[in-house]
Amino acid sequence: MSDVTPISSRFRRGLWDDNPGLVQLLGLCPLLAVTSNFINGLGLGLATLAVMALSNLLVSATRRWIASEIRIPMYVVIIASLVTCIELVFKAWFPALDRTLGIFIPLIVTNCAILARAEVYASRNGILDSVIDGVVMGSGFAALLCCIGFFRELIGRGTMFARMDMLFGGEPMPGIQLADNGLLLLLLPPGAFLSLAIAVASKKAIDRRRQKSASFRLSI
């Protein structure tokens, strides 16, 4: 069975219509905890994306042999191993980012968005389709992490793209300093909830406006 939906509309689904964080509200623990700046969001987003794509690949490749009775432990073993690998890779290649993200890299294991994709999609679809699904859904999650991180850093600290060196190497980069200080609230845990609420509400508002203009066009 092959997914015939064109790639572009699948990306649209992952990034917008079915965004794991924004619509399904899955994986909120890391989403809320690490997004105090853009680089953290990007780092954790990329790690989650990689785990999601690879776990979908492995789950899909082994789906013929996995009896439904043991599928959950199977997924957990696969996802936990992949996360351990990703953690080691982060420690080796992005040590600074690993130090900031700390426990949230190993905690990707508990991101239910990943288990959800394994269960809902990869266990029923071909390898290529499943990998695409992992990339698409992972991108949606990563994009949301980046947006919230960008927003909280901008308002909370007054900077943009600070410490990009943690991912790309080189000397410490202060980023673009727009103001000396920001609204501290945004950096504290309540700021994470507020930012997520703003993101979810904005998405709904945009969808509703679109729907309205579409039905308006129809009525003409």
Binding site: T62, W65, I66, A67, I70, P73, M74, V77, A80, S81
Partner: peptide, 11 residues
Amino acid sequence: VTLMTVAAICT
């Protein structure tokens, strides 16, 4: 056996 095999591969 399946679970063990997958666990071994993952390890």
